[in-house]
């Protein structure tokens, strides 16, 4: 990480792209709610719901928060604690639900 480094910004998206992302977010939410009312293997639905939440998360973080276009170090500053938190949560759940006994 050299000093006086001026981050090379990729072109930020314009209002058109933002609206498209907004529409995609709404569609995913609609699909999620639809999934919720489907009677199917719970495991499958749960994984689909988690995946769609992750997709929305990444869309907002990547486009609305500009992580895809902005300096990569901001993304590191955000995703490292996120990974730590996910690891902590998984470890805690393993212990709480007696998977480690």
């Amino acid at each position: 990480m050299a000093t006086e480094h001026v981050a090379a910004h990729k072109e930020h998206p314009g209002p058109r792209q933002y609206v498209i992302i907004g529409v995609i977010l709404v569609v995913i939410t609609a699909i999620e709610v639809g999934l919720f009312y489907i009677q199917a293997t719970p495991a499958l639905i749960v994984w689909l719901l988690l995946a769609s939440s992750l997709a929305k998360f990444l869309l907002v973080a990547g486009f609305f928060m500009h992580l895809r276009f902005d300096d990569r170090r901001f993304a590191i500053l955000f995703f490292v604690p996120l990974l730590i938190m996910v690891a902590l949560a998984v470890a805690l759940m393993a212990m709480f639900f007696s998977l480690t006994r």
Partner: peptide, 15 residues
């Protein structure tokens, strides 16, 4: 909220 809605509401209440 995306996480809370997905994990707590939808996954939580499914079933």
């Amino acid at each position: 909220w995306v996480v809370i809605f997905g994990v707590v509401y939808l996954v939580g209440a499914y079933g």
